[in-house]
Computed example of a mutant assay.
Amino acid sequence: MTHILVVDDEQPILELIKNGLRKDGYLITACQTAADVDMQKLHLYDIILLDVMMPGVDGFEYCKKIRNIVDCPILFLTAKTLEEDILYGLGIGADDYITKPFRIAELRARVNAHLRREQRERHSTLTFERIKFDLAAKELWVAGNRVTLTKSEYLICEYLARNKGQVFTKEQIYEAVFGLDGDSDNSTIATHIKNIRAKLEKLNIQPISTVWGIGYKWE
């Protein structure tokens, strides 16, 4: 089920949004301040609606804080209508800007449009919480940071990630990545994985585990 986070300090607006979006079958989590949001659950949301003018951390600051953690659309809800405010909001990572007062029908249409686009784009991406594969560009990203991998390292990561939880021997990985006509041998897989782990360790993440006596898997 599509899960939407709404952060707005005005309770009547929260209720309006919740009631409107629930008509489309979405699960809504509503918070009145950024401090109320559980950071550990940010990866669960498919879209975030964020008020700009809130007590404590405002929407602009919160967007900057979480933009490298989440890759879902962020839509600002605000009474600020000056062009420089809109451009600033979009410049720090927001995907859309809806000015108050707004019609709930317009909000529903904007949310649905962003979710449809996300569904289309996900055909060319593979995402695991902080990790995202850009399958078209053959790039691996962690929390918004592009990981510099060789072609072989990337292909090993993509193969394991596409088969998350399944254990593969070095021979199976080598054949899947390099084919039967590879000009090396499967012992190079261990070296490639060692290099991959060293690069990912710098970003405090280690998705490839060793299954002793068998091989490797993506967790």
Score class of each variant (00 low, 15 high):
1 M>D: 13
2 T>S: 00
3 H>A: 04
7 V>N: 06
7 V>I: 15
8 D>R: 04
9 D>W: 08
12 P>T: 10
14 L>P: 02
17 I>D: 05
21 L>Y: 07
23 K>L: 14
24 D>S: 15
28 I>F: 06
30 A>K: 13
43 H>L: 10
45 Y>M: 11
50 L>G: 00
53 M>A: 12
53 M>P: 03
53 M>F: 03
55 P>F: 01
57 V>M: 15
57 V>S: 01
63 C>L: 03
66 I>H: 06
67 R>A: 02
69 I>R: 11
70 V>G: 04
70 V>S: 01
71 D>W: 05
74 I>L: 12
75 L>C: 03
85 D>K: 12
87 L>T: 14
87 L>G: 12
91 G>M: 12
91 G>K: 14
94 A>F: 09
94 A>N: 03
103 R>Q: 14
106 E>V: 13
108 R>H: 09
109 A>S: 11
112 N>H: 15
114 H>D: 06
119 Q>S: 14
124 S>I: 10
128 F>V: 12
131 I>G: 01
134 D>T: 06
135 L>I: 04
136 A>Y: 04
138 K>L: 04
142 V>D: 00
143 A>I: 04
145 N>W: 03
146 R>E: 02
160 L>H: 05
165 G>M: 02
167 V>K: 06
167 V>E: 08
167 V>D: 07
167 V>A: 11
168 F>G: 07
170 K>L: 08
170 K>R: 15
172 Q>H: 12
173 I>M: 09
174 Y>Q: 14
176 A>C: 12
180 L>W: 02
180 L>N: 11
181 D>S: 14
185 D>T: 09
187 S>P: 01
189 I>P: 00
191 T>D: 03
193 I>K: 05
197 R>A: 08
197 R>N: 11
198 A>P: 04
199 K>Q: 07
200 L>I: 10
201 E>N: 08
202 K>G: 00
203 L>T: 10
206 Q>P: 02
207 P>V: 04
208 I>R: 03
211 V>S: 01
215 G>V: 02
217 K>V: 00
219 E>C: 07
